[in-house]
Simulated assay, not measured.
Amino acid sequence: MTRGRIIFLNGTSSSGKSSIARELLDVLDDGVHFHLAVDAFGAMRTKRELEPDELDAALRCTREGFHRSVAAMAEVGNDLVVDYVLSEPWRLRDCLAVLHPEDVVFVGVHCPLEELERRERSRGDRPAGLAALQFGLVHRHGDYDLEIDTGALDPRACAERIKAFLPRRPTLTAFTRLRRRYAAEPTR
């Protein structure tokens, strides 16, 4: 059985990842693709108010479960578009550990901070300042297969750019390079 391909979109909140993912499902014409977003997993969680420690533990378990769900879906041959925020170093390290790096097309979704803040305000469904908080964190690892700027391109154009890149993606993927780099560094 052939494992599925993972188009992994990483960017801050309000950067346009979900909009790009929806467009990718429309423009990719080489099989069946699934959009997996960690927000959808979080929406399945109980609605009762959780104490801070309990919430932190639930969020960590949700994210670890999400990583493994992505891995399991790809392992059995599903092609995926993953919409995620790598705002904590452990998240990237865990993804590097559970995903086959040669199957991942790692896409950095960038957007100017002023535009992120404008989008955040207009959405009204995110805590104020979330995008600014994540802005300096999500791209800190500094290595992608492809980078796009949603401040310059609309979601459809971003999806078309990703589609055009797929046949030219490198054999030494960003996930492969990052896995090697992090394996050589001591764990903190």
Rank of each mutant, 00 (worst) to 15 (best):
M1W: 04
G4V: 05
I7K: 00
S13Q: 08
S14I: 00
K17R: 15
H35D: 06
L36M: 13
A37S: 15
G42F: 15
G42W: 15
G42A: 13
T46G: 15
K47I: 08
R48H: 14
L50M: 05
L55C: 05
L55Q: 11
R60G: 03
R60K: 09
G65E: 05
H67F: 01
H67Q: 13
V70L: 02
A71S: 09
E75M: 09
G77D: 09
L80S: 07
V82D: 08
D83N: 14
V85C: 14
P89D: 15
L92E: 04
L92T: 00
L96A: 00
A97Q: 12
V98R: 04
P101R: 01
E102R: 03
D103I: 05
F106N: 07
F106Y: 12
G108V: 03
P112V: 01
E114P: 10
E115T: 10
E115Q: 13
R118L: 08
R119K: 07
E120P: 15
D125N: 11
P127E: 11
A128Q: 14
G129E: 05
L130K: 09
G136K: 02
H141N: 01
D143N: 13
T150I: 02
G151F: 12
L153Q: 10
A157H: 14
A159L: 03
E160L: 15
A164T: 06
L166N: 10
P170A: 04
T171A: 13
T173L: 12
A174F: 03
T176W: 13
L178R: 02
A183D: 12
A183C: 06
R188H: 07
